[in-house]
Simulated assay, not measured.
Amino acid sequence: MAGKATVRVRRVYESPARGDGARVLVDRLWPRGLSKDKAHLDEWCKGVAPSTELRKWYGHDPELFEEFNRRYRAELQDSEHADALAHLRDLAKGGTLTLVTATRHPEISQAEVLAALLRS
């Protein structure tokens, strides 16, 4: 039986770490003030990001994280999101996967929700 995937969450503004593996941006919008060269990304997986409506409603308010988590997991079941999530699962099978996001608090972001799903 295969072990659980190694999935990390980091801010895109942090320098890459040696053990990051594949680095995938999971935000719908490109990070402000960051060039593609400085991002050190392997991919940009926009299709897995929360809808604009959900992102704006949430606004990274810690008090809304639990409800955001529930709503986002529901969104991940639609076809566009599900295909993108399946792609991330495939990447995680190939080795360490680091989900990167521009948010200041990655521990309450879509990247953390995705990481929890991919690790399970």
Rank of each mutant, 00 (worst) to 15 (best):
R8C: 00
H87W: 14
Q110D: 00
G33R: 03
R8G: 04
K4G: 13
A5Q: 13
L114C: 02
P16N: 12
L99Q: 08
A111I: 05
L114V: 01
L25I: 02
A111H: 07
A2K: 13
E80W: 13
L117R: 11
Y72K: 07
H40Q: 15
L91C: 11
H60F: 12
A39L: 09
E67M: 12
Y72N: 04
A22N: 09
L54Y: 07
H81A: 15
E63L: 12
L34F: 03
A92L: 13
F65I: 05
A49H: 07
P62F: 04
S120V: 12
A5E: 10
D90S: 13
A49V: 10
A116K: 14
A84P: 03
P31Q: 00
N69A: 10
L85N: 05
R71A: 04
L91K: 11
S109F: 03
V113W: 08
D20L: 00
P50K: 01
G3T: 10
A92W: 09
L85I: 09
V26H: 01
L97F: 03
A74F: 08
L99A: 05
E66P: 07
D20W: 02
P31S: 00
S15R: 15
D83M: 12
S15G: 12
W30N: 05
E107Y: 01
E75M: 06
S109L: 00
S79R: 15
A82Y: 01
T52C: 01
A39R: 01
G21Y: 07
R89D: 06
W44D: 03
G33I: 04
V9N: 07
T52H: 12
P16L: 05
G95Q: 04
S51I: 10
F65A: 08
P106T: 00
